[in-house]
């Protein structure tokens, strides 16, 4: 088996959060990323999906050392990464941010923005630099004369293309797309998604595709990891995830999405509010809102286990039908029609 491009082992990132307002009392710890492990192979797209506060963006940033990991290992092409090798990492892995309006510096010309990585890594200068920049812009579907314009002159979709061009300048093998289409209008979103797919084909890119939008993630990914409060709760191929989600949270998430062609599908009810990341529930972090929860769940946090070949889930009752859940819940359990 070939070595994976990126391997993450037990990665953890904690933040210290100050509580207590003006008094400065009490420090809480937010476990934004809590013991996460996964791999990405060359040329594949791993989707990372979850709602706000699940830690997916923090995870993306930590992998790139934009945040210092608290503990755990990151291996790139088999070699462990440390602070010293970070510059090398930056040639191999890049990121495209969410907000097209704040991810481009307002006072630099587009040509400079896209060319800067080449300058930083000493990959081109002068005339060659210009040519490379023009080529990159064309690759992402922009006219070469865009290089002379400023970010404020471009639309959201165009800016995002610039962001992609910038990320591709160093010819990385891994690109992290951190909610890269979430701020775009629907009609533009599809263009960018198609572009990303084309680029993946052309340049053999691996993607870590972070998004809260399950439809987008399904379209783009080969495999998907679902996150909840800093942990991966399910990890498998796209097909398996949508056909037979094992984790109750995944099931709830999938059923919450409005469906175009399925008006009367039953919802898996999800009660309660998303918990405070600084005060997570004991045991399984999802248990207060889970239909299948039993006493075990409040005491023992489930590990990510391979319940079926190639299909990992972190739940004590992964294979149980939701209908067979405990009768403690007030609302009757509902079947999901897939």
């Amino acid at each position: 088996m070939t070595q994976p491009l990126l391997e993450v082992r037990s990665l953890t990132k904690y933040f210290n959060v100050q509580a207590g307002g003006a008094l400065g009392f009490g420090r809480k710890i937010v476990r934004a990323v809590d013991d996460v492990s996964f791999t990405i192979s060359a040329g594949e797209t791993l989707g990372l999906v979850g709602e706000s506060g699940c830690g997916k963006s923090t995870l993306a940033r930590t992998i790139l050392f934009l945040e210092e990991p608290t503990s755990g290992e990151i291996l790139f092409q088999g070699q462990p990464l440390t602070g010293k090798r970070v510059l090398e990492l930056r040639r191999q892995a890049q990121i495209v941010f969410q907000d097209p309006y704040s991810s481009l510096p307002p006072r630099m010309k587009i040509g400079s923005i896209v060319g800067d990585p080449l300058v930083i890594h000493g990959l081109a200068r002068g005339g060659e630099l210009k040519d490379r920049v023009a080529q990159l812009l064309e690759d992402v579907g922009l006219k070469p004369n865009t290089a002379d314009r400023f970010a404020y002159e471009l639309s959201g979709g165009q800016r995002q293309r610039v962001g992609i061009a910038r990320a591709l300048a160093v010819q990385p093998s891994l690109v992290i797309a951190d909610e890269s289409v979430s701020s775009l209008d629907v009609s533009v979103q599809a263009q960018i998604l198609n572009l990303l797919q084309d680029l993946q084909q052309r340049h053999q890119l691996a993607y870590l595709f972070v998004s809260h939008d399950l439809g987008v993630v399904k379209y783009m990914s080969h495999r998907i990891a679902v996150m909840y409060l800093g942990k991966i709760v399910e990890l498998t191929t796209t097909d398996k995830l949508y056909q037979q989600p094992l984790n109750p949270y995944t099931r709830a998430l999938l059923s919450a999405i409005p469906k175009m062609h399925d008006r009367d599908h039953r919802r898996v009810p999800l009660k309660g509010e998303p918990p405070d990341p600084a005060k997570p529930p004991p045991g399984c972090k999802f248990h207060p809102r889970c239909l299948l929860a039993q006493e075990l769940c409040s005491q023992d946090a489930p590990e990510l286990k391979e319940w079926q070949p190639g299909h990992f889930a972190a739940c004590h009752f992964a294979l149980d039908d939701i209908g067979a859940g405990s009768a403690v819940r007030q609302q009757p359990a509902k079947e999901i029609e897939s």
Binding site: A19, G20, G21, A22, L23, F25, G26, D276
Partner: peptide, 13 residues
């Protein structure tokens, strides 16, 4: 200010 702004006064949830 601290006394009047509920966001500061009641920060400790």
């Amino acid at each position: 200010y601290a006394a009047l702004d509920p966001r500061i006064r009641l920060s400790a949830r």
